[in-house]
Write a protein that binds this DNA or RNA. Structure first.
Lengths: 229, 229
DNA sequence: TCCTTAACGCGACGGATGTAGCGATAAGAT
DNA sequence: ATCTTATCGCTACATCCGTCGCGTTAAGGA
C-alpha cells in the first residue's frame, strides 16, 4: 500500500514548505542543490526505516546517513514526523488503484488483504507512520490525506457493485468501505489481537452481507425492501 | 470510560513489578513507604495529564509534582508509558458495566456514545494512552488488557439481544461489538475525520442491521434464512 | 560575468533524558 | 530491640534533542 522504493530519482520535486516561517515565500529555489539534499535525506529516511525500524529513526541518524547537516534537516523538516510526512507525500501521488475481482466481496477481501499486508509488513512502515501521526502534526495530516485519497479511489468498488445489482443503489461507498476495513485496523493496531488471515475474509464478508441487507443506504432509504437484489 | 479520580486513597496496592530485573522477586515490601510513593506518583500523573495534557507529561515533571526523586520514578516505571500503564491498570479494575436500554441498537448507541465521549474528552486522556501505547511496551499491553476486558463485559449486550430474538442465536458477540465500535475509533483516531455525534448512531444502526441480517453468525451458519426474526 | 540572496555547513549552547554509584532510610523478620 | 535488605534520595555524568548565530556556497537574474 505504501511503496518502499529506494531508487534515487532525479530531483525536481518541490520543497515541502518549511511551515515555521509561514511568510508565504514562493519557494524561489526549487531545483538544484536543495532538491539534491531533499532526495538524499528522504532516501536516508526510507533506508533507515527499512533496515533499523522506527525506534532507530531520529533526525540525527538521518542527517548522518544522508551526509546532510543536522541543522539543515531540522530547518526543513522540523522533526521525525515531518520527515515521514514528506516520504508519505511522495507515496500519495502514486498510481495505485483498487482491485477488480468481479464481485463486491472479492474486491473487499482483496482490499483487506492489502491492509493486512501493510500492517504486518516487516519492517512495519505503516505502523511507524501511525505512531508518528500522534507525535507530529505534519505526519498526522499527511496520513489523513493519504487515507482520504485511498478511500476515495476505492469508491469505484461500490459503484461497480451497485451496477451489478449486488447492493442497493443508495449504498454509501465510504461507509461500506470503512465497515469492511475499520475492524481490521481496530484489531491489529489498537486492540492488538493476534490476527490471522481469516479475519481479512471474515470482515469483508460481514460488510458485504450488511451492504446487501441495506445497512449503508444513504438518506432515509435504509429499507431492505428497496433492495433490487 | 476511563475514570479520572484524583482522590488520594489508602495505599495497599501491589507494586507494578519493576520488570527490568525480572528476578521473579516476590515483591517483599508491598505496603508502607513504597505504596505511599506509588500513590503520590500516580496522582501526580493524573493531575498533570488533566491540567496540562499529554505533551507536558514527562518523568521529570511527574517527579517534581509528586515530590519523589527522578531516579526513583525511572527505576520503578522506566518511562512515561510505564506510568500511564500503571494508571490504566488501576482503572481496569473498576466496576463499569455496559448500558441496558432494552434494545440492541439502543445499547450499541449508548456504548458508542461513551466511546465518542472518551475520544473527544478534554483533556484527551484516551488519545494520550493510545499514543503512548505505540511508544511503550508496558502501555500497549495495559491498553490491550483494558480493551479486552471492556469487550468481554459488553458481550452481555448481545446475549440479551439473542434472548429477545433480535438477532440470530449464533451471533458472535465480539464481532458485532467490534463492527459497531471499530468504525468510530477508525474515523476519530486514525482517519481523523471531523466526526459529528450522528456518526455514533449511524455506526450502531449499521451494525444492528448487519446483525439482524445474520452477518456475524458463527460457524457456517451465516445464512440469513436461519434468522428467526 | 557579476550581484543578490536563499539555502546550507558549522560550532556552540541550553535543556531534557536516562543511567551509575553510593549512602541513607525504613519495612519486615527474628 | 536489633538486624537485614529492599527501596529511596542524592550527586554526577553521558547522551540526545532542538535552536542560534554566523560564515560559506551556489541558484537564478541582470
Amino acid at each position: 500500500m505504501i511503496p518502499t522504493r529506494s531508487t534515487s530519482e532525479i530531483p525536481g520535486a518541490p520543497l515541502p514548505s518549511p511551515s515555521h516561517p509561514i511568510d508565504a515565500a514562493p519557494a524561489r529555489r526549487p531545483g538544484g542543490r536543495s532538491a539534491q539534499v531533499r532526495r538524499r535525506v528522504l532516501d536516508a529516511v526510507r533506508d533507515q526505516l527499512v533496515e533499523q525500524g522506527y525506534d532507530a529513526l531520529s533526525v540525527d541518524v538521518v542527517a548522518d546517513r544522508s551526509g546532510v547537516h543536522r541543522t539543515t534537516v531540522y530547518r526543513r523538516w522540523r522533526d521525525v514526523g515531518g520527515l515521514l510526512a514528506d516520504v508519505l507525500a511522495e507515496a500519495t501521488g502514486d498510481d495505485w488503484s483498487p482491485p477488480d475481482t468481479g464481485s463486491l466481496e472479492g474486491d473487499l477481501v482483496a482490499v483487506n488483504r492489502e491492509v493486512h499486508a501493510a500492517l504486518t509488513g516487516d519492517p512495519p512502515i505503516t505502523t511507524a507512520l501511525i505512531a508518528a501521526s500522534f507525535r507530529s502534526e505534519q505526519a498526522g495530516e499527511a496520513l489523513r490525506l493519504f487515507w482520504a485519497d485511498r478511500y476515495a479511489r476505492c469508491s469505484v468498488i461500490v459503484r461497480r457493485a451497485v451496477e451489478r445489482g449486488e447492493v442497493p443503489a443508495r449504498t454509501d461507498a465510504r461507509r461500506l468501505l470503512v465497515a469492511a476495513t475499520a475492524p481490521l485496523y481496530h484489531e491489529m493496531v489498537l486492540l492488538r489481537t493476534p490476527a490471522g488471515p481469516d479475519l481479512v475474509e471474515r470482515w469483508a464478508g460481514d460488510a458485504a452481507t450488511a451492504a446487501r441487507a441495506g445497512a449503508f443506504a444513504a438518506a432515509g432509504a435504509a429499507d431492505p425492501m428497496t433492495d433490487p437484489g
